[in-house]
C-alpha cells in the first residue's frame, strides 16, 4: 500500500482571498449590471480549478473584461481602496492577442496569488484584462498613486515577470487622471 504524498492531499492556502470578476459587454444593460463576480478562492488548488474552468482571456468576446481583485475590493475606480490609486498599463496590439495575451494574464495572476510583489503586495488591489478590438489592455491596480517608491517597485516587478524587453516602457496612470483626461490617454505619473 503506497502512502500518498501529504503535499498532494492538502490545499495550499493563499495569503489573500481573491475574487475573479467578469464584465460582459451587453449594451442593453448599464455598466454595473454587466459586472459580475464569478467566484472567490483562497487556495492554490481552487485557483487552478477556476482557471482551468473558464475561457482564456484571448477567447472572451471583444468588449469583455476579466478582473482579479482582493476579496472585498470591487474592480472599479469608485471603490474606497481604488479611488486614490492607479494602474500600471500594458497596451497590446492585435498580434499579441494570439501570441502573448494569455501568458501575460496568467503570469499576472500568478504574481498576485503568489504575492510576488513582496512588501508591495499590500499596495496592490488587483489586475484587469480588457479585450478590445482596438487593442487589448492589461493592468495592475494599486491603491495609492502617491506612494512613489512602492509604485515603482510594483512596475519593475511586473515588467520583469512578464519579460518585457528593456527598450519597451510601460506607464503608470492615476485613476484620477484617467477619469478627467482630456485626450484619449491619461498622462503617465511613472514609467519603467
Amino acid at each position: 500500500v503506497s502512502i500518498p504524498d501529504p503535499e498532494l492531499l492538502i490545499k495550499h492556502p493563499l495569503h489573500n482571498r481573491w475574487a475573479l470578476w467578469y464584465f460582459k459587454n451587453d449594451k442593453t444593460k448599464d455598466w454595473h449590471a454587466n459586472l459580475k463576480v464569478v467566484t472567490a478562492f483562497d487556495t492554490v488548488e481552487d485557483f487552478w480549478a477556476l482557471y482551468n474552468h473558464v475561457l482564456p482571456a484571448s477567447k472572451i468576446a471583444p468588449g469583455c473584461d476579466y478582473s482579479l481583485f482582493k476579496d472585498g475590493i470591487q474592480p472599479m475606480w469608485e471603490d474606497e481602496r481604488n479611488k486614490r490609486g492607479g494602474r500600471w498599463l500594458i497596451n497590446l496590439n492585435k498580434r499579441q492577442r494570439n501570441m502573448e495575451l494569455d501568458s501575460f494574464w496568467l503570469e499576472t495572476l500568478l504574481c498576485l496569488i503568489g504575492e510576488a510583489f513582496e512588501e508591495q503586495s499590500d499596495d496592490v488591489c488587483g489586475a484587469v484584462v480588457n479585450i478590445r478590438n482596438k487593442g487589448d489592455k492589461l493592468s495592475i491596480w494599486t491603491h495609492d498613486a502617491t506612494r512613489n517608491e512602492a509604485t515603482m517597485r510594483v512596475g519593475r516587478t511586473l515588467k520583469d515577470r512578464l519579460n518585457i524587453p528593456r527598450d519597451i516602457t510601460i506607464g503608470f496612470q492615476a485613476h484620477s487622471d484617467t477619469m478627467t483626461k482630456a485626450g484619449s490617454t491619461a498622462k503617465n505619473r511613472f514609467v519603467v
Binding site: K11, H15, E45, W48, A49, G114, E115, A116, S121
Partner: peptide, 20 residues
C-alpha cells in the same frame, strides 16, 4: 509572515489536485 509561492511551485500544482 506573508504566504508566498513562486511561479514554478504554482505551475506544478495546476493539475495536481483535480480530484479535490
Amino acid at each position: 509572515g506573508k504566504k508566498q509561492y513562486d511561479r514554478a511551485f504554482l505551475l506544478q500544482l495546476q493539475f495536481a489536485n483535480e480530484s479535490l
